[in-house]
Amino acid sequence: MSISVNNISKHFGAFTALDNISLDIPEGELVALLGPSGCGKTTLLRIIAGLEQADQGDVFLKGDKVTDQPVKNRQIGFVFQHYALFRHMTVFENVAFGLRVKPRRERLGEAIIRKKVHDLLSLVQLDWLHDRYPDQLSGGQRQRIALARALAVEPSVLLLDEPFGALDASVRKDLRQWLRNLHHDLNVTSIFVTHDQEEAMEVASQVVVLNHGRIEQQGAPGDIYDHPANAFVSRFIGQTNVFDLDEHDADWLQTVGLSMAQQKGKIAHVRPHDIVIEKSTHHSDAYVTLKDWQHLGSLIRIELVKSGVNGQAASVYAEMSNDQFRRLHLNRGDKVDLRIRHAHWFH
């Protein structure tokens, strides 16, 4: 295991940031710590880095116990949400910093440092900015320089705290892909913190979902999406419709195709793409009304309203491709038949 944490707990006064967390991350993975704000993900990252002390528990990097080691001895690279570039140094000096502060006997010669820094700047495709100051760069450029600076010391693990959190949406999209490719080339074990599930799913090879200081689920993005371990994960990862048997009529759910044989709890979560709709042909009580729809690129999101006849009135969301939707020739206010293909049951 490249990174292990054992039974880590951390309290800030009465607030429990981390509650007995254990986590193993194999060599070479790109892991997302995903969760809503206040779930403890940044605290966990900072404890792994040594920027924060846990109240209890141990941290292992490459098999060595580093719990009591200061951050400077842990051989980590840390990238901050707001870049934390040294504002009084040029881009070149920022990247060279980690090489220049080494003890004299470990320090590389000036020529080697220069070459190494320029190589790193080329790696992040910003060598042409080497004599600028951080003030003169855009957010995306700053974050890439921060990454080059962290990589300069050849860290055994790379830790990124909301690396794209402060960037524009379009820059963020580009950088996500870029980070994925970079990780593929360098293959250094990396953890990044994010509250954006889309970002976690797109970039990470493993996702760890945290909530209230606990790990809710850990796994590959596809696994987590297809087999959410609990209601929180199901709601947090992707869109979902929630049917509570206390509020909705079980008979109605059966008529729309939900098999009660698989029922394992009393709350059913249904992904929008697991809902199929057709123009209503007969007069059944199962119908819903089409209220509105939105274009999401290649997909259409359809907002349906279930009348109060069958349990509580509620909005139901379905998704389908543009083509499919066009073929249905539906208008606002049409009655449609609804069918549920698949549901996850939770208690």
Partner: peptide, 13 residues
């Protein structure tokens, strides 16, 4: 404090 934390993470005393 972030710049100082960055320096420490880069191995500075």
């Amino acid at each position: 404090h972030e710049e100082e934390e960055a320096a420490l993470s880069l191995g500075a005393s």
